[in-house]
Nucleic acid binder design. Structure first.
Lengths: 109, 109
DNA sequence: TCTTTATTTAAGTTGACACTTAATTAAGTG
DNA sequence: CACTTAATTAAGTGTCAACTTAAATAAAGA
């Protein structure tokens, strides 16, 4: 699911859609009205976002309201933060190593 | 630059390259030896990463050593964290709103 | 049931981009 | 100056996915 979520977020248009529905539930056509692309294109994006667990649908008559799925974002946030933490730890170590090297160089001058 | 950085990171192969050089500077060919794709393909990826400010080159004779550019990552981290913070604030507000609605419903039953 | 509204699914087109091989540049080395 | 090594640039290919229009589904109203 994390892989699907990351893939879903790599498309700028889908991030725009998420920003929109984050302000409150919207129907497919209401979302489409914010862009210049066709309704089917939006529908396809929504399908990707739904399968990635980032949005949920609530059906009401012929309308379908799309909204943010909080659990999906929570999982994703946790994953990305662990990635950052790990990555930053390595960067910190590298920075310290470099500093050590610079001190060594200076002492040899 | 942030846009370029995000775009650079959407390609899995480039993330793999970043993981590699994060452990220490590597030449283009050393990086290529870790994958099954051609040297030019790696070179093209490195160019994208460099233009996104995520790696830096150090020339030494015919060799070019690629390494992580910390400032680039710092900028990116800041951006993504602000995105998260903002996004989470809105999600928190939405969650509270929903809770209020549920209480209301219960009190009316 | 026929029509309208909301949306999706189907099918096909197009552009971006990650790759390839071949040619080129750049910097030593004999 | 040739030759080698390291890497890039050039040019072309194939794939994928974001889009299009047209057709299908699904629910509600006349």
């Amino acid at each position: 699911m994390i892989d699907k979520a990351i893939h879903a977020l790599t498309e700028p248009r889908r991030r725009d859609i998420l920003y929109l529905v984050n302000d409150g539930e919207l129907t497919s056509s209401a979302i489409a009205s914010h862009f210049e692309i066709s309704a089917p294109a939006i529908s396809q994006h929504l399908k990707v976002l739904e399968e990635a667990g980032l949005v949920v649908v609530r059906r009401a008559g012929t309308k379908r309201f799309y909204g943010i799925r909080r659990e999906g974002f929570a999982e994703l946030k946790q994953y990305i933060e662990s990635f950052w933490d790990d990555s930053l730890l390595r960067l910190k170590a590298a920075a310290e190593e470099e500093e050590r090297r610079q001190h060594e160089t200076k002492s040899k001058q």
